[in-house]
Nucleic acid binder design. Structure first.
Length: 508
RNA sequence: GGCAGGGUAGCUCAGUCUGGUCAGAGCGGGGGACUCAUAAGCCCUAGGUCGCGGGUUCGAAUCCCGCCCCUGCCA
């Protein structure tokens, strides 16, 4: 059993969870569940990024403490992850003592390695961006992103990290391990960036008290990347003894907008500290509406609780990964189009194809054979199942989640076609063809059982329900699947797995 | 301004690296035969200047040049 440590980006405590957060968590959860299914010893961590000026300002505006604010947000995020069946093993928050300990230990190691130095920094500082701006970036003396915020001329003594010193080693690493940055489009981006050269970056701040105290430097806190990125090691006990059992991570799942931090700054920090680099950083794409990022109002219209309520959590998970390729962006013309597509996909794939297949198969097996199922084999459907299994595993191992999902659904489509070509209702009227009917029903049951297992990472609750309705007990691991097929249906009558959704006429 | 990705049927996309069954899939729409089933499933059906203009070639969505537009990152 091999260790498989995967993480997602930690979410910044500056607002409620939205569909973008959910997409990333669901995708990572599918990967985590797939690896458990494949027999790996999975450790899956998500969490919150809770420091920084914006959090402090928002808390002040609400007249409460920053800790109070982030506690509430963390609870809201965790509640949504619970509703979405996210199966994380740990939830790291950067305000936890274990995180402070790890960050300070890491900073000390990097300083001991000679990669931190003090320097004076001066320039225009935007309080909205929490960053220095070049004069050329300002418009009429204001930050173009935060024109209402003030720009202040600031002089600071800060600690700097010698990022520039790691350019060559990073280039060499990526060239030797092309899988380190995926998908390929992200890798190309990072390679171009590295070829252009790197500048040193700030490691401390003297004016942002809401953060991890910089070791041995009163009044300074650790700057963003040194605060947020080490969550991946603080969550597994760095610098304690157990850390080495889990590190390095097999996979960091992140949004493509922060690839730079994870593929340049983070590995440079790890190299400096003498730690191993993660195996893979995966920069997924985004849900887009009308050609661009989700606006605030669009994000609000796509409220997570409402989306989950619409057809249930599993259907929402299915839709996200069926429609939005894990390695690219997906654009919907409008919020309405998104919802229409969700409804259509739910009905056509889950209700009509999958749910109805289960229903008709179970009904025939009961009607013609009183629920008994013989060992399967030898039909065209059996062959299709074998092919789909292979395609599925191959796609999933390469994190091509949408292809994996499609492979699983291939079985469903093949099974529906199989029923119509075999016409079991005719076989049932001809006693001479009883054996063929047995084989047909067995292949269908096997197809559904296999589908349940392959879909388990995507729709965990509904997959388990399918498995039970077929008469299975515990869901098997992938390797056990051929030996653990159900042999008889349970006696109870079933309700439908995915009730068809009839849309209400739209008003206006 | 630099870098990257993209502009193909109503919608979302595959195909472009390795030029000639490359004009495709899914959904939606239209038609048909069945009946085990959630009026689901199955079969048939899409004639879209493959962003625009040149060029190379016997032949280009697919290669080359120029241009337009969209998106993201960086500046």
């Amino acid at each position: 059993m091999s260790r498989y440590y995967l993480t997602t980006a930690i979410d910044y405590s500056n607002g409620d969870p939205h569909i973008g957060h959910a997409y990333e968590k669901v995708g990572a959860d599918v990967i985590a569940r797939f690896h458990r299914l494949a027999g790996d010893d999975v450790h899956f961590v998500i969490g919150m990024d809770e420091h920084g000026q914006k959090v402090a300002q928002e808390a002040a505006a609400q007249g409460r403490s920053p800790q109070d604010l982030v506690d509430e947000l963390a609870a809201r995020f965790e509640a949504v992850w619970g509703r979405l069946h996210i199966s994380h093993d740990d939830f790291i928050r950067t305000t936890e003592p274990r995180h402070t300990t790890a960050v300070q230990a890491l900073v000390r190691r990097i300083r001991d390695a000679g990669d931190l130095y003090e320097d004076r920094y001066e320039g225009y500082y935007c309080t909205g961006c929490e960053a220095f701006k070049r004069e050329a970036e300002l418009e009429d003396g204001k930050c173009p992103i935060h024109p209402s915020r003030e720009i202040v001329w600031t002089e600071e003594e800060n600690w700097f990290f010698r990022l520039s010193a790691y350019r060559d080693r990073l280039l060499e690493h990526i060239e030797a391990h092309p899988e380190f940055v995926q998908p390929e489009s992200r890798r190309n981006e990072i390679l171009r960036l590295l070829e252009g050269g790197l500048e040193d970056i700030s490691a401390s701040r003297s004016r942002v008290p809401w953060g991890v105290p910089f070791p041995d430097e009163d009044g300074h806190t650790v700057y963003v990347w040194f605060d947020a990125l080490p969550n991946y090691i603080s969550a597994i006990g760095y610098p304690g003894d157990g850390f080495a059992d889990t590190w390095p991570a097999a996979l960091h799942v992140i949004g493509k907008d922060i690839t730079r931090f994870h593929c340049v700054i983070w590995p440079a920090m790890l190299l400096s500290a003498g730690l191993e680099l993660p195996d893979v950083v995966w920069g997924h794409g985004f849900v887009k509406i009308g050609g661009g990022k989700l606006s605030k109002s669009e994000a609000k219209q796509l409220d997570l609780d409402q989306l989950i309520d619409r057809h249930g959590p599993d259907a929402f998970r299915y839709f996200l990964l069926r429609e939005i390729p894990w390695d690219r962006d997906r654009d919907f013309p409008s919020v309405e189009a998104f919802l229409d597509q969700f409804d259509e996909r739910y009905n056509s794939d889950l209700a009509n194809d999958l749910g109805n297949l289960l229903n008709r198969t179970v009904a025939m097996a009961r009607k013609y054979r009183d629920g008994a199922i013989v060992p399967p084999g030898g039909t065209a459907l059996d062959d299709a199942i074998d092919d789909a299994l292979e395609t599925y595993v191959d796609a999933m191992r390469q994190h091509r989640l949408h292809d994996g999902l499609d492979a699983a659904m291939t079985i469903v489509r093949a099974a529906n076609g199989f029923i119509d070509s075999e016409e079991p209702w005719k076989l049932a009227r001809e006693p001479k063809r009883a054996e063929r009917l047995d084989a047909v029903l067995a292949a269908l049951a096997r197809g559904l059982a296999t589908t349940a297992v392959l879909l388990q990472p995507f729709i965990p609750a509904k997959a388990a329900e399918m498995w039970e309705r077929l008469g299975g007990d515990e869901m098997p691991a992938l390797a056990e699947l051929p030996h653990r097929l159900p042999t008889a249906l349970p006696e109870r009558a079933d309700s439908v797995l995915f009730p068809r959704f009839e849309r209400e006429p739209r008003s206006g």
